[in-house]
């Protein structure tokens, strides 16, 4: 019980740190780091639920695998966008990305 709660608290704190990072950073790559931390927090929770509540349910592990894949995809697409933006504007500072503002 206490181990489950400890793992969940760790997950929640990591999520908070990631959310802070994603909101406060101005650089696209740093924002992606915040998102990665949040996804990591989600994985901690998934594994904790699998281990302490349903160790027989293998689909929980499949879920974690999918989240890991998603992290890699997010990085690939994010770096693609960063490269395109850097080619076009010479920086990936998100403060300057105001073209879509109405």
């Amino acid at each position: 019980m206490i181990t489950l709660v400890v793992a969940l608290v760790v997950g929640a704190s990591l999520f908070g740190v990631g959310l802070y990072g994603a909101l406060s950073q101005t650089n696209l790559v740093m924002i992606m780091m915040g998102i990665e931390l949040m996804l990591g927090a989600a994985m901690v929770n998934l594994v904790a639920f699998w281990r302490f509540l349903h160790p027989g349910a293998v689909s929980a592990q499949v879920f974690v695998l999918i989240v890991m894949t998603e992290m890699a995809l997010e990085m690939a697409v994010g770096f693609g966008l960063a490269t395109a933006r850097f080619r076009a504007r010479g920086s990936v500072e998100m403060e300057e990305a105001t073209e879509l503002r109405g």
């Binding site: 929640a12 704190s13 950073q25 500072e93």
Partner: peptide, 19 residues
């Protein structure tokens, strides 16, 4: 290289506390 610091800290702390 940061912006909207106060909002982000508030959001982060709120998210963590809710979790």
């Amino acid at each position: 290289m940061t912006h909207q610091k106060r909002v982000s800290v508030a959001a982060g702390v709120t998210g963590a506390l809710a979790g």
